[in-house]
Design a protein around this nucleic acid. Structure first.
Length: 959
RNA sequence: GGGCGCGUAGCUCAGUGGGAGAGCACUACGUUGACAUCGUAGGGGUCGCUGGUUCAAUCCCAGCCGCGCCCACCA
């Protein structure tokens, strides 16, 4: 059967994938040797909502390489797959879908019904990404697939929550949290993105407000300064100026703070201002938080809506006024009381229109309308915060309390999912005492029980954990693990894994049965992800897998989730898992942090920019192996991957190259022989390729040991194309066509073996094409996915003599080819070679490799002579001079130029080395071998220069 | 403000205290029965700038210039 000219990736990949699946090739422990060590990776679980993107493709290719490599080496290997329920993201997707389908909204459906819809959606499309990972070739043990909301994992979540609650490491607290007004839930610090806002009509400004001093107080405000910044003129003021980027929050101010050291305001501490619009009398407090160098030096304090102000408020026991609804509408504006209590001497800017019925409600309405006109408002029903901003500013201006604004681009917090502005919001939430949990996690990395690769990520990890804040884990969402806490009639909390246990606790507490209601909140998605390395292995049950595979080996991830996920797995793993001695056990010994995939210009891929490259499109176009090989080649440590489609095409071509090399072997009856022993080959070319193959094995293993994936891929590429295809295959041709049957047989067997070794070593990165070739190039006992990774050493298989000889032959051929090309000798023309000044060794080398040199250099004949023939072009090589009598075709001028150029290069180099060697300091201080090496190089250079000069002389004689 | 990283061939990037590399692109030639998704040959770089350490610096150190990312409560 003759092979096709190219590999049909589309057809073969699915066939091979189902073969692997049918034979359960990826099952935990498959292909393990007796008594093998375990090797386990837990997959970073993709969102059930997700589909495969380039980041996944890279992440999973690298994991798959490590997994396949270990599996072939006989480790007891498990790649644990699974998916994340991705609370907010999934809830968002389903809500959107409901809206798009014209279905009732989440709130209309109610919690129970909505969750049914989410589960239905999960059942319907949750397997999408698994199918995509399979197309990529990911060799996970799919039979063990887990989901963070599975019963088993949910049990783990409940157990962890209850235990941490008992340990005092989970607690409920009323404090400011980051509130997402779109999803109406708290989010953690990590889910907040700081986005710079540019100055615009309603944002990016610093507005100055005037707060009148109460009780007729005044102070001297400096208005002119000398060069040194000392005030030279003052004016008497009866108001304070405060600045803010969020003017609407002034409605919730409960103090103004000044620095106690600030001479301008020192005497005002303890006095009061009247908060404009609301008329509230609020104190002026002295607090170091107020920075005299910033703004006016006086700062408004809104304890319920600003993290700093919250702290100031606590220090001074200030009231904390919540002025917003969960949707971040300003409540005051909808409240008639606000307008009634507001002393607005200046009145609204336009007189309220007289209405027919002069009732209070009408007055209010008229006033409201005036405000709306003024501030260009649309509605007064629960006035949105940004509308309220306009209204507040307009009102303040009308009241003479507005002191102008300046442009001030600044960072504003946004929700990473909702993209809306986050509000600090005062609510009851559940928190994890992350600081306490972080300590063992820090220690483990400091003492090397877990190592980051590359190491510099450890600093990032330390910096974050060192300053870690309490982790807000409760979410006011419906999709997720519900907090396992029940409340009694008096709101006493009972934390238990089941309602039954909670009831028992309540009965004990109250002395009788009580009605309980469950906490409605769910947990942050990352809470369950943090348990992933042990929850997926069966914890809290004592499963064999947990005993066998925990701790896992290496975690492969992008740096963007070091905080979200890696650090939290470390914290949870070490709190809940113990080794034989009872000491906390890390979830993995290594964390390999890879780069992010960007577009070919280095931009982050994003749907809105439209520069997203879909890995599935690439797989369709070039095959999974090409995509995998590309990403692996580019996965150098510490740098982003800029992906250009042309690279993928290039690696697809590489696959074709390998395919055709196999095809060549097939056509020449190179059949893999299980009994073949590479150490017994006799032909020099065969000794040489055996040695090269052994070196490749060492390079591959060393690269993979060090997670230098690009070195691994690069070595395979260079060996396969530039060694095996470019030279060995060419060397083999004359042997296949020659008379020497023994040499031919040996070469057939060696070629088959060398190809087989490439298939073995390339399988982890290019599993499909190698598996296909494995099937077509021999009768195999087991599929390549379970092939035996080679273990031979170059020291045993490489033959220095053979290496030297083939190196010499290669350079001889290259030199002749170079001359031919430069002299425009047509490919069809065969030319004679005359060797002069050849050493005995050189002569022997040429004799032994006569056939292949003749063929590859396209020679008609060769001979040796004492002196160079007339009219020959000469090239210096090691231990000989190559003379090509090309008198007919020779272009003397061109040849002279060629020789002079070569000579110039050699002389320049020699000169440099000579200078170095004549430097006393160099000779005395540099290591012996370096000096010796330089001497040798100088010798060689001189010899070559000599040969070139001789050539030039002869050329001159010809002319 | 703090931290991390990057500036090497036209492009994308490896790399090393002692002879500057790859892929793609480019130029010329080429259907020599594995492969035109190919072959052969070739052009192209003061390794960001300036100092320092060293016998020796693209590599180590400092500063500068340019670019990117992460973290941070600055009104």
């Amino acid at each position: 059967m003759t092979m096709e000219k190219t590999f049909d990736a589309a057809a073969e990949e699915s066939r091979i994938a189902s073969m692997w699946e049918k034979k359960k090739c990826f099952a935990a422990g498959a292909n393990a040797k007796d008594g093998a060590e375990s090797f386990c990776i837990v997959i970073p679980p993709p969102n059930v909502t997700g589909s495969l993107h380039m980041g996944h493709a890279l992440n999973n290719t690298l994991q798959d390489i490590l997994i396949r490599w270990h599996r072939m080496r006989g480790f007891d290997t498990l790649w644990q797959p699974g998916q994340d329920h991705a609370g907010i993201a999934t809830q968002m997707v389903v809500e959107r879908k409901l809206a798009a389908d014209g279905q009732p909204s989440r709130r209309e459906l109610g919690r129970e019904e909505f969750l049914k819809r989410v589960w239905a959606w999960k059942e319907e499309s949750g397997d999408t990404i698994i199918g995509q990972l399979k197309r990529l070739g990911a060799s996970c043990d799919w039979s063990r697939n887990r989901f963070t909301m599975d019963e088993g994992l949910s049990k783990a979540v409940r157990k962890v929550f209850v235990q941490l609650y008992k340990d005092g490491l989970i607690y409920k607290d009323k404090r400011l949290v980051n509130w997402d007004p779109h999803f109406e839930t708290a989010i953690s610090d990590l889910e907040v993105e700081q986005v710079e806002v540019k100055p615009g009509a309603n944002q990016g400004k610093l507005w100055r407000l005037r707060y009148p001093l109460a009780d007729g107080a005044t102070y001297q405000a400096p208005i002119e300064w000398d060069e040194d910044g000392n005030p030279t003129a003052h004016e008497t003021r009866d108001y304070l100026i405060v600045a803010t980027t969020r003017p609407e929050t002034m409605l919730g101010d409960t103090a103004v703070a000044v620095n106690p050291e600030d001479p301008r305001y020192r005497d005002l501490i303890g006095k009061h201002v009247i908060l404009p619009l609301v008329g509230r009398r609020i104190p002026i407090v002295g607090d170091a938080y107020a920075d005299p160098t910033k703004g006016s030096g006086a700062v408004k304090i809104t304890p319920a809506h600003d993290f700093n102000d919250f702290e100031v408020g606590k220090r001074h026991d200030l009231p904390m006024l919540n002025i917003m609804t969960p949707k971040a509408a300003i409540t005051l504006f909808a409240d008639p009381e606000f307008w009634l209590d507001t002393p607005y001497e200046a009145g609204p800017p336009k007189a309220p229109k007289k209405s027919k019925k002069d009732t209070l409600a009408d007055q209010l309405r008229a006033y409201a309308e005036a405000v709306r006109d003024l501030a260009d408002l649309h509605s007064l029903d629960g006035l949105d915060r940004f509308e309220a901003r306009k209204a507040v500013l307009a009102l303040l201006e009308a009241r003479g309390c507005y002191d102008g604004a300046s442009d001030e681009p600044h960072m504003v917090p946004h929700g990473d999912r909702s993209k809306v502005v986050i509000e600090p919001y005062l609510t009851d939430q559940w928190f994890v005492d992350a600081h306490t949990l972080a300590q063992p996690a820090l220690e483990a990395v400091r003492d090397g029980r877990t190592a980051f690769v590359p190491k510099n990520w450890e600093k990032t990890y330390f910096n974050w954990l060192d300053e870690i804040q309490p982790w807000c884990i409760s979410r006011q969402l419906w999709w997720g693990h519900q907090v396992p806490v029940w409340y009694g009639p008096d709101d006493t909390p009972f934390c238990a894994e089941t309602e039954k246990e909670a009831r028992a606790l309540a009965k004990e507490h109250y002395g009788k049965s009580a009605r309980l209601r469950r906490d409605e909140d769910v947990l942050d998605t990352w809470f369950s992800s943090a348990l992933w390395p042990f929850s997926t292995l069966g914890w809290p049950d004592a499963t064999p897998e947990l005993a066998r595979y925990y701790k896992t080996d290496v975690l492969v991830t992008g740096f963007d989730i070091i905080f979200f996920w890696v650090a939290r797995m470390m914290m949870m793993g070490m709190h809940f898992m113990k080794d034989e001695t009872g000491a906390p056990e890390v979830p993995f010994h290594s964390v390999y942090v890879h780069a992010l995939v960007r577009d070919e210009h280095g931009k982050k891929m994003s749907k809105s920019v439209g520069n997203v490259i879909d890995p599935l499109d690439l797989i369709d176009q070039f095959g999974a192996d090409a995509v995998r090989f590309t990403l692996t080649s580019m996965a150098a440590m510490g740098r982003d991957i800029k992906l250009a489609v042309s690279r993928v095409e290039g690696y697809r071509n590489f696959g074709t190259k390998l395919w055709n090399a196999a095809r060549f072997c097939e056509m020449n009856d190179c059949v893999a022989d299980p009994k073949f022993d590479p150490s017994t080959v006799e032909q020099t070319v065969n000794k040489w390729i055996v040695g090269e193959t052994a070196r490749l094995r060492e390079t591959c293993d060393a690269a993979l040991e060090g997670y230098r994936f690009n070195d691994y891929a690069g070595a395979l590429y260079a060996h396969t194309w530039n060694v095996f295809c470019d030279w060995y295959v060419e060397f083999a041709k004359p042997l296949f066509q020659g008379e020497d049957a023994a040499a031919k047989n040996e070469t057939q067997a060696t070629a088959a073996w060398a190809l087989e070794q490439i298939l073995l070593m390339m399988h982890p990165v290019s599993p499909f094409i190698t598996e296909a070739l494995w099937e077509s190039t021999g009768k195999r006992k087991k599929p390549l996915v379970h092939g035996d990774w080679p273990a031979y050493a170059a020291a045993d298989l490489a033959d220095p003599q053979a290496d030297k000889e083939m190196g010499w032959v290669v350079s001889l051929i290259e030199q002749i080819r170079s001359v031919r090309a430069e002299m425009n000798v047509g490919a069809g023309a065969k030319i004679p070679l005359v060797l002069t000044g050849a050493s005995a060794a050189a002569m022997e080398r040429l004799e032994r490799n006569e056939a292949l040199v003749m063929r590859l250099a396209r020679l008609s004949e060769w001979s040796s002579a004492k002196t160079a023939p007339k009219g020959a072009i000469t090239v210096a090589i090691e231990e000989a001079v190559v003379n090509l009598p090309l008198a007919d075709v020779i272009d003397i001028k061109a040849e002279k130029a060629r020789l002079e150029k070569a000579l110039g290069k050699v002389e320049k180099e020699a000169k440099g080395i000579e200078a170095k060697l004549s430097n006393e300091a160099f000779v005395s201080k540099a290591p012996e071998e370096v000096v010796e090496e330089q001497r040798e190089r100088l010798e060689a250079g001189k010899a070559e220069a000599e040969k070139l000069r001789a050539g030039l002389t002869r050329l001159a004689e010809m002319a």
